[in-house]
Design a binder for these strands. Sequence first.
DNA 1: CTAATTGCAAAAAGTTTGCAACCAT
DNA 2: ATGGTTGCAAACTTTTTGCAATTAG
Lengths: 149, 149
Amino acid sequence: MEKGLKMTGQRRVIARVLSDAEDHPDVEELYRRASELDPRISVATVYRTVRLLEEKGILERRDFGGGRARYEVSEHGRHYHLIDVDTGKVLEFEDEEHEDLMRRIASRLGFELISMRLELFGRRIPEPEAAQTESKRSKAARGKGTRKA
Amino acid sequence: MEKGLKMTGQRRVIARVLSDAEDHPDVEELYRRASELDPRISVATVYRTVRLLEEKGILERRDFGGGRARYEVSEHGRHYHLIDVDTGKVLEFEDEEHEDLMRRIASRLGFELISMRLELFGRRIPEPEAAQTESKRSKAARGKGTRKA
DNA sequence: CTAATTGCAAAAAGTTTGCAACCAT
DNA sequence: ATGGTTGCAAACTTTTTGCAATTAG
């Protein structure tokens, strides 16, 4: 099937690091993790492997800002990302309804939906604290005047 | 008023290029267009201006793949992009329903939606050219598997 | 065996920055 | 006048690549 691809030790290691990853590491981070498992891997190989896997549709490149590309195992837009603008943390979520809507929209425009990318940027809404006496919510609440919940 | 910002000739030119742009130019392209209006502008200034405007929320940086950052006047996620995977062309569209859905999803996760980014990747579906003759429509519509770019 | 793959280091590509000259305010 | 701004080139950062050595199939 595939051309003449070889399953080398390096690729095995990188593949493992990737499938073990619960986050969205950039190349530098992949390199670091891979190096732990096998110190003789070079960055160039990580770059080459990552590019190869992306071309094959196995990996998806993400851009959450910050200059470097980040990667995750491809699920063909089956889940999305919500980035907390204050902490920079990335939260994943899915939504069947959304996927259908996208397919309809693409179709309406005359396209077959192949993949998609959705990123929401939001700010945590301070929960109506039913907790203990918390008289100082100044820090969390400090922001612009308007907010809707 | 803004801090101590100056409205220089260069900024005026770059601002004009940006608001005139119907597409999503990268810095190199912005530089080229700006240079036409005023040849003494340098790339560094374009980079600096673009960064400034992004920080001020006036511009939004996009990543459609291809290494360079692309820019467009900010509309706070009021429109989205459909990238034709075969031609690389970017098509814009809006969808009220979608915006509401996103707000609901963010809210469900405990976040106030601030901005979002949505990109669809799709392949053009050859339209069964139905001018007035209804007769040849059936035949053309059957070929669901017939797809070519 | 031999084409694919790797490491290394050099090079490319994209973006940022130090500094002296410059120019809106 | 004077502090923000610019151009230029050097510096950085991230990613790619040429080439000889290495290795999976």
